[in-house]
Design a protein around this nucleic acid. Structure first.
Length: 242
DNA sequence: GCCTTATGTTCAC
DNA sequence: TGAACCTAAGGCT
C-alpha cells in the first residue's frame, strides 16, 4: 500500500506489508481490515472512485491510496473520507449507520420512525440512520416505482407502502451491486427507454426520472419535474406520483 | 480552456 | 442554509 502524492502516506505505511483480512461495507461506508486490527475507513462521497487495474502504472492525478500486488492494482481518488481508524472510531461510525437493505438488516426501527414522521419521505429516504446506502438516485427511482409523491409525509404512508419501498430497495440495490450501475427500469418499459435520445442518463444506468428533467416520463409521457429538497436535486413524475 | 455539475457528509453561522 | 471538502466529465465559448 502506498499513497503516491503523500496525502495518506503515514497511514499507508502503517498497514503496508500487513495482511489483508476483509473488506466490508455498511451503507456507504467501507471498512478495510488488515492484520493487527488496523482498519481503514473509506467513504467515497460525491466523487470518490476506485480504479482497478491488472498492472501498476505510473501515478496520474491525485491518488489517495494505491494497493498493489504483482497481479493487480487498486487506486482510490477523491474520497470524502479515507483514514486509518481505531476500533473505537469504527464503533462510533457504525453506530450512526442505520439498517442497510442489502445487508438483510431489520427495518423495524426505521419503519416506526418513518410512519411517525412529518418529514417528507423524499427526505427520510436520504437519512442514513433510516436507509443506509440509499442515495439520490435510489431515492428518486424507488418513489417513482411505488407511485409515491416525494413530498408525502412519512406518517401518511401505510406500513404496506413502507414495506414495499424497503423490499424494492433490496431488489434494486442487489441489482446495482451485481451490475456495478443503477438500473431501475422494469422490463416492460425497457423498449421505450431504449428509444430515448442518445446521451441521456449519463450516470450509466437506465432510470425512470433521475436527471430526466423536462423529458417525457417513460410510463405516461408527462414531463419529469425537478425541485430542491434539503439541498439535493429531486426528480419525480407529477402524474405517476400522487 | 473555463465553467458547471455530480450517486455525499460535516461543520460553521 | 451555505460553505468546504475535492475530482472528473460534460457543456460551452
Amino acid at each position: 500500500m502506498t499513497s503516491p502524492q503523500g496525502r495518506f502516506t503515514q497511514s499507508a505505511s502503517v498497514v503496508n506489508e500487513t495482511p489483508f483480512i476483509k473488506a466490508e461495507a455498511f451503507g456507504k461506508h467501507l471498512f478495510i481490515t488488515f492484520g493487527h486490527g488496523k482498519v481503514i475507513h473509506i467513504h467515497l462521497g460525491l466523487y470518490g472512485k476506485w480504479t482497478f487495474l491488472s498492472h501498476t502504472p505510473e501515478p496520474v492525478g491525485l491518488i489517495r491510496i494505491q494497493m498493489s500486488t504483482p497481479q493487480a492494482c487498486a487506486q482510490l481518488r477523491g474520497p470524502n473520507a479515507c483514514a486509518l481508524i481505531s476500533p473505537d472510531e469504527v464503533k462510533i461510525i457504525r453506530a450512526k449507520i442505520g439498517p442497510d437493505p442489502i445487508r438483510k438488516d431489520d427495518p423495524q426501527s426505521a419503519r416506526a420512525t418513518v410512519l411517525a414522521s412529518r418529514t417528507p419521505i423524499g427526505a427520510l429516504l436520504m437519512d442514513q440512520t433510516l436507509f443506509a446506502g440509499v442515495g439520490n438516485i435510489y431515492r428518486a427511482e424507488v418513489l417513482f416505482r411505488s407511485g409515491i409523491d416525494p413530498q408525502t409525509p412519512g406518517k401518511e404512508l401505510t406500513s404496506e407502502q413502507f414495506d414495499t419501498l424497503w423490499r424494492d430497495l433490496i431488489n434494486l440495490m442487489k441489482i446495482g451491486v451485481r451490475r456495478g450501475r443503477i438500473d431501475t427500469v422494469r422490463p416492460e418499459h425497457l423498449p421505450k427507454v431504449m428509444k430515448r435520445a442518445p446521451r441521456e442518463d449519463r450516470h450509466g444506468g437506465e432510470v425512470y426520472v433521475y436527471r430526466r428533467t423536462g423529458l417525457p416520463c417513460h410510463v405516461c409521457a408527462h414531463e419529469v419535474a425537478e425541485s430542491d429538497l434539503r439541498g439535493r436535486n429531486l426528480f419525480w413524475c407529477p402524474n405517476c406520483q400522487k
